[in-house]
Amino acid sequence: MYRREFAYDNSQSNGDVNKTLQREIKLAQNIQMKLLNGDKPKIESGEVSGVSIPARLIGGDYYDFYLLPNGKLRIVIGDVMGKGIPAAMLMILTRGAFRSASESTKGPGETLTAMNKALYADLRALGSFVTVLCAEWDPETDTLTYANAGHSLPIVIENDGDLREIPKVKGVMLGGLPESQYNENAIHLGEESLAYFYTDGITEAVNKDGDMYKMERLQDTLIQYYSLQVNEIEESVVQALDDFTEGVPQKDDITMVLLKISNGKTDITSYNSPILN
């Protein structure tokens, strides 16, 4: 393989080179933001949403939705090892693997198995890995099925504001072992309940005293705001984190995905990703 050394026109000053690099980073940031923040699926009598706030100009966290022909919605949230541009490049790779796998697999467990097969060799060669939680929302049965590749489980708040402990499901991160299989678990989500998926940039956010935000504070915040609309819950969590960290620079990417079931039957009505016939 031919390889060019990093080179630039000697007549260019350091300032020119810096400007070029800054422009390219800005373009990369735009690409990532557009891919991450596409239209969200619209759900009648319910809402889904997601937001990702990188610690640097671009980040390695990832979330996505994929509407299946049978009306189910597949949800994924992931965290690539590391930060910045290297993590962002692998995040794009992960996105492609998720979208390809979603088309050809029956459920979240199979999706993760297919993603690991697709990504394992590259991730191992690069000494990297990705933690991913994949879930599938079935609006017909009000069931959330989920499988886990080394990620935190979602937090579920019931319609009375109670925290619900959901059955655990374990699995090795993508890029850990070549033949990983991923088990699934499932829960019924009642009306007005909230499923909150997140990355560890939230629970590991640090304040001036060096204390972490931790799971307990996140749960308390969700219990306080779960009855709001999903975008308001997102804003409330971000505000609570800002209040906690009091200006301490964000060290890790922060990402959350929310699925909120409202009154009545849920129906996914539209989505921006390709719908298979």
Partner: peptide, 13 residues
């Protein structure tokens, strides 16, 4: 380490 699957990798390998 348990959540990410490190111990499972160690055991398998």
């Amino acid at each position: 380490l348990e959540t990410i699957g490190v111990f499972q990798i160690m055991e398998t390998l």
